[in-house]
Design a protein around this nucleic acid. Sequence first.
DNA 1: AGCTACTCCTGGTAGC
DNA 2: TGCTACCAGGAGTAGC
Length: 284
Amino acid sequence: MPELPEVETVARLIRPALEGRRIQAVDVRWLRSLGGLSRARFAKCVVGQKLTRIWRRAKYIVFDLEDDLGRSAGCLVGHLRMTGRMHVEKQDVEPNPYTRISLDLDDGNRFHFIDVRKFGRLTWAAEPGQVFASLGPEPLGDEFRAEWFSAALRERKRMLKPLLLDQSFLAGLGNIYVDESLFRAGLHPLRRSDRVPRARAFELHAAIQSILRQAIEREGSSFDTFYRTPEGQPGSYQAQFQVYGRTGKPCRTCGRSIRKITVGQRGTHLCTRCQPAPRAKSTT
DNA sequence: AGCTACTCCTGGTAGC
DNA sequence: TGCTACCAGGAGTAGC
């Protein structure tokens, strides 16, 4: 599922084809992908506007818009959720059957928002700040410091896994990179955040940053046909997975079989030797 | 405050 | 082979 590295990869991929282009028409094939806006309102806000900048915040992709007088005209805000994809191709290419929203561009190309499971969104907002107000820091941004992280973990008294998935705590991680980060730091997903020693919090902080950086370098992870872009090659970070999707396979560090448990309705992968259980009880 | 359950969705797969 | 049941899950929301 697209998380920060995959979303960053998509933004980088589509940016050159979009920046500077003007939107000439829109085609909304699945209304709910607009996240509550009507087709008419969406079209009114978007058609005729110029795409000036494509950027990422957390797992959102933002398309800044400008009207023909050069004034700000709000922005498109996209979220890929589980199966969303974005790409640009020639207007005469037959669109993918799962295309939910298309934008005709002034250079003969067409932008497509494709989403098999329809969880994703592409909507218009006057102010992106409104959408982002409740998001926590960017894990690769300056405000995400080890000292802050250690203190924030102590303040919250939650299990590590749901806390790291909480976008208002830290914005951009999803199921895969949380599992991988916790493994790298040797922390059990059920461990309470306020019981993580300071040195361990620093290790987790470093693990999150280094894993995200490596994943971006490898253009994210793709292990399923849903997550591949038609024109771009799939990412390759999945080859680096230590625990995610490796249930029953030997831990690459100690050899013990990787286990899968459920935490907050989410599949959670771990090595019970490298990530000891929070209580004395050993779950083998 | 933090937890669980439920919702939205559909392709893939396990089981019969 | 063909059917059914269940699984994956990000984020929002409701209720305890």
